[in-house]
């Protein structure tokens, strides 16, 4: 296979305790650590392993967003991607708009496989990969925990509620990855230096001439309802009594 595209989204780091802004307009992002969406990192790791096994020649990482997303693309290049493309926009995009932009890049790059995280940990939408597959009119294999490439097809084991489902899909296709597919590598300092010399193209979103489509309006953010701390019991007898008290046993 010639080329895999991997999406890397810049998101609030998963270790940050997210807080809703007091005016309800969003969550606090000032001075907050930003990282590659963890699921996207797993997608990139898988693409790099495919390249190392000689199954693919080139791994291209793509981000869509503000110019700050270059940081995440540089990290992707340091992990081992060959080149990067930033589709630059400051507009809020919904998954359908992102999928449409991605489709334009798929066409331009003649991609045979797109690897994506199953969802981003900010919006938690879990939509973009499926939408890209739909408008590309190609197969999708979501929640992948194992991917095996066999020429023009791929066998993908998917983590579904009932267990592990295996599908066979024709390529080109979109595969979205789940947590247990692999453990992403750590980036070493020399790789960071090398990554600075790798190509990173910046394409203004307006150049692609895409109608980003309808937007779901965000009205307001609020903190979730909190559960109150309950009681502590001293021993099993106390626990059994408390459960009986609540009519649970």
């Amino acid at each position: 296979m010639e080329k895999i595209l991997v999406g890397l989204k810049r998101v609030v780091d998963y270790n940050v305790r997210v807080r809703v802004k007091s005016d309800g307009s969003g969550v606090e992002t000032d001075g907050v650590k930003m990282s590659i969406n963890p699921f996207d990192e797993i997608a990139l790791e898988e693409a790099l392993r495919m390249k190392e096994r000689g199954e693919v020649n080139e791994v291209v990482v793509i981000s869509i967003g503000s110019s700050e997303s270059q940081q995440q693309l540089r990290t992707g290049l340091a992990m081992g991607a060959d080149r990067a493309i930033l589709v630059e926009t400051n507009d809020a995009l919904d998954p359908l708009g992102v999928a449409r932009i991605f489709k334009a890049l798929v066409d331009r790059e003649n991609a045979e496989l797109v690897l994506l995280g199953k969802q981003s940990i900010d919006g938690d939408n879990n939509q973009m990969g499926q939408m890209l597959a739909a408008i590309w009119d190609r197969p999708q294999a979501t929640f992948a925990s194992r991917i095996e490439l066999n020429g023009n097809t791929a066998r993908v084991t998917r983590e579904v509620d009932a267990g592990l489902e295996t599908n066979e899909i024709d390529l080109p296709a979109v595969i979205t990855v789940d947590l247990r597919l692999n453990e992403p590598r750590y980036v070493k300092l020399p790789d960071i230096m090398k990554a600075k010399k790798k190509p990173l193209d910046i394409v203004p979103a307006t150049d692609l001439g895409i109608d980003a489509g309808p937007i779901v309006r965000e009205i307001s953010y609020e903190p979730p309802a909190r559960r109150e701390r309950g009681i502590m019991v001293d021993d099993v007898a106390g626990l059994v009594a408390a459960l009986k008290d609540k009519g649970l046993i």
């Binding site: 609030v12 305790r17 997210v18 807080r19 809703v20 969550v27 940990i121 900010d122 919006g123 938690d124 309808p214 937007i215 779901v216 309006r217 965000e218 009205i219 307001s220 953010y221 609020e222 903190p223 979730p224």
Partner: peptide, 15 residues
């Protein structure tokens, strides 16, 4: 709907 792993609840309006 929940966002940020349930750390925020977002009110949305579809067109």
């Amino acid at each position: 709907r929940p966002v940020y792993a349930g750390n925020a609840v977002l009110t949305v309006e579809a067109l």
